[in-house]
């Protein structure tokens, strides 16, 4: 008998996916419902906003923002 599971399908780059999986591992698997392949996974619907915030936090450390203040 097939089962239906409610969730949010996330499609992203493999690099982002691995970060999401890392976040999930850190927080006792509170986010991911099912890993589908290296670019898609299903997460819990009510955790999406929190996941986005954590992802942004992680990415802030890895990216360099170009300085735009002198362009005007």
């Amino acid at each position: 008998m097939p089962r239906a599971i409610r969730g949010v399908l996330i499609e992203c780059d493999p690099s982002i996916k691995s970060i999401i999986v890392a976040i999930d591992n850190e927080s006792d698997h509170a986010y991911v419902v099912e890993e589908l392949d290296d670019q898609t996974l299903v997460v819990k619907e009510n955790m999406l906003t929190s996941l986005k915030m954590k992802l942004d936090d992680k990415l802030k450390d890895t990216q360099i923002q170009p300085d735009e203040s002198d362009l005007d």
Partner: peptide, 20 residues
């Protein structure tokens, strides 16, 4: 936009290939 999110339902555990 690092990821594209689509709310919905995952269907799994089909008995056989034909049904799937």
């Amino acid at each position: 936009e690092r990821m594209k999110a689509t709310p919905g339902f995952l269907f799994r555990d089909f008995d056989n290939l034909k049904e799937y």
